[in-house]
């Protein structure tokens, strides 16, 4: 994305240079004065950006360098909180757990979204339009409500699972047990987000120039070859965007496990994900300094992870 900006900036620089020469000297000064309007347009956002992004980040970092105890009061302890965090089994386990979620959940969502979008792209019937809308609907449902709905569906008391499984003569699995909660959460997140990703991918597919398919067809390409050798490479920049968002979202995993915790207490503990751990440190134990260190570490890891991912995929995304 960064170099994309630079390209755009370079392009606009070229444009303004081309515009500039015909003007008399006074006009150029006028143009320069006009450009200051840019700051006025950007200023309101810049203020919010400074107060609610830069300031909290700086504050969290500052807080994380201190330690506050009842006995000694608040004292500067440097990186001690970070040393503690990266040797704290609760934080490390949470980090590994969200990584495991990323490895399973992102491909699951992406596969559903991609296949659905590719199928939709070849059809233009009423059924396909309606299914497109129905697949997207979960995105319009708040995550908390989605998780609540699934917690009801998983529940042995309310859910349809018992009925469905007894039809084929089986006992329903307990979706909320410790060894099945992972899959249950993957299912909730896939259900919630796959439709949104599908719409993004579908929109990208629709923007491909159809004459390319015509050419491919004349060259004898079948549907599978068209999909894998033409469509996929041409939508790779949307795929990179979708994966980046999914990655950032998954590593901050919070809402779904918190909601499910009240029905699956044994399976989800208070430090299930790093965000849940930071939350309980801050609001149950008032350890704001250590919680800041955890939050800042998580933020830095997510930022580094998505930057590395964008760097590795710079060819596919066309961002070079």
């Amino acid at each position: 994305m960064t170099s994309n900006t630079m390209e755009a900036t370079a392009a606009s620089a070229v444009r303004s240079r081309r515009d500039a020469p015909p003007r008399p000297g006074g006009g150029a000064r006028l143009v320069r004065r006009r450009q200051r309007w840019g700051w006025l347009f950007v200023a309101p956002f810049a203020i919010v950006f400074a107060i609610f992004l830069v300031l909290p980040l700086g504050y969290a970092f500052g807080m994380s360098l201190f330690t506050s105890t009842l006995a000694t009061g608040t004292e500067f302890t440097g990186v001690a909180n970070y040393v503690k965090a990266f040797t704290d089994p609760l934080f490390l386990e949470g980090m590994l757990r969200v990584l495991a979620y990323a490895v399973v959940m992102i491909p699951a969502q992406l596969l559903v979204a991609l296949v659905a979008a590719l199928v939709l792209d070849t059809l233009a019937t009423r059924v396909s339009k309606l299914s497109r809308l129905l697949i997207f609907v979960p995105y319009a449902i708040p995550v908390v409500i989605g998780a609540l709905m699934w917690s009801f569906l998983y529940s042995p008391r309310f859910g349809p699972a018992a009925t469905i499984f007894s039809m084929v003569g089986l006992d329903a699995p307990n979706f909320l047990a410790a060894d099945s909660i992972f899959g249950s959460l993957v299912n909730i997140v896939t259900w919630q987000w796959a439709g949104y990703y599908m719409i993004v991918i579908y929109a990208a597919l629709r923007s491909i120039d159809p004459t390319i398919y015509e050419a491919a067809r004349i060259d004898g390409a079948n549907g599978w070859q068209t999909a894998t050798r033409i469509k996929l490479p041409m939508i790779s920049s949307s795929m990179v965007m979708v994966i980046t968002f999914a990655l950032i979202g998954t590593l901050q995993f919070f809402t779904e496990p918190v909601v499910l915790r009240s029905v699956a207490q044994g399976a989800i503990d208070a430090a299930y994900t790093p965000n849940m751990y930071a939350f309980s440190l801050a609001f149950s134990y008032s350890q704001f300094n250590y919680a800041s260190a955890i939050a800042f570490s998580l933020g830095a890891l997510v930022f580094a992870g998505s930057t590395v991912f964008l760097f590795l995929t710079r060819k596919q995304s066309g961002l070079k």
Binding site: M6, R36, W37, G38, A60, N275, V302, F303
Partner: peptide, 24 residues
């Protein structure tokens, strides 16, 4: 508008998309 500091500020805004909001 091509105001002074546009490029660097926009790059910072783009980078901030990758800052997880829950960390804030």
């Amino acid at each position: 508008y091509r105001f002074r500091g546009r490029g660097p500020f926009f790059t910072i805004v783009l980078a901030s998309v990758m800052v997880p909001l829950t960390a804030l």
